[in-house]
Design a protein around this nucleic acid. Structure first.
Length: 256
DNA sequence: CGTAATACG
């Protein structure tokens, strides 16, 4: 069984202080895709930069304290690509791609579209680039997992206040439509497929107004998988993570 | 409200 987790840690150093390594030791994911590490590897304590039993790779933003993704892996991938090979996205450390032979995993920190849709074009270009890489790989006969913080809730049941957020970043029609488009290429939103029609399953809660206590949240973190992976999905779940973080980890168990 | 450097989510 393969345990694959994705988690927006909102600052890996802050997450470290809240018990990241205890979580890692308890959960023992085989593969862990992290988003919003907000640090360069040189800024991390050795125990965090490379915990016992793990290989680690970092894709960092040029801007200090901003964005950043990482892959923590107990297994040795065939190859790791710290980026998409597209400068405007790799400069923000948004992607880690790793080839594990029977599948390729793409861990992405999809851009926030910003108020007034200021960065919507950038976001849609990133989304398209991820999907294009996925299609390339599928064209080569590969199975693909796309995971990470999509910064988008797909449908009304994926956030507590759909009506009030129709003009807000993360729930714009264009952002929602892209998820629909991704699914139309044959990718499967495996968490939703296992909880059809069920509201209240969120992965992010605002720090404001004790939103998490009241479960006023959004489902922003996903696993999309190609059809050949579907039959191997044993379980998909939202974990609790560490106390005091705004995103929870999403866990996928694959019988591979 | 929180992270990590004064912007971003």
């Amino acid at each position: 069984m393969l345990n694959i987790c994705t988690w927006n840690v909102n600052g890996i150093r802050a997450c470290h202080r809240k018990g990241f390594l205890d979580w890692l030791k308890k959960e023992q994911p085989d593969l862990l895709c992290l988003q919003e590490t907000k640090a360069h590897p040189q800024q991390l304590a050795a125990e965090l930069r490379q915990p016992p039993g793990y290989h680690t790779w970092f894709a960092s933003a040029a801007k200090k304290g901003y964005a950043g993704t990482a892959l923590y892996s107990r297994r040795s991938p065939r190859k790791v690509f710290p980026g998409l090979g597209i400068q405007e996205f790799d400069d923000e450390g948004r992607t880690v791609v790793a080839d594990y032979g029977h599948f390729v995993i793409i861990g992405g920190y999809f851009p926030n579209s910003q108020p007034e849709g200021r960065r919507l074009d950038y976001k849609l270009a990133y989304n398209a680039a991820v999907l294009e890489r996925c299609q390339e790989l599928r064209g080569q006969g590969r199975e693909v997992l796309i995971c990470g913080d999509f910064n988008a809730a797909h449908t009304p049941i994926d956030l507590f206040h759909p009506k009030a957020n129709e003009k807000n970043p993360g729930y714009l029609p264009e952002e929602r439509a892209w998820v629909t488009h991704a699914l139309s290429t044959g990718l499967h939103d495996i968490f939703r497929e296992r909880h059809p029609g069920e509201p209240g399953h969120y992965t992010w809660w605002s720090y404001r107004a004790r939103s998490r206590d009241r479960n006023i949240g959004w489902r922003l973190d996903y696993f999309l998988v190609t059809p050949g992976i579907l039959g191997h999905v044993a379980q998909v779940s939202h974990l609790s993570g560490v106390l005091g973080s705004d995103h929870c980890p999403v866990k996928l168990l694959l019988d591979l």
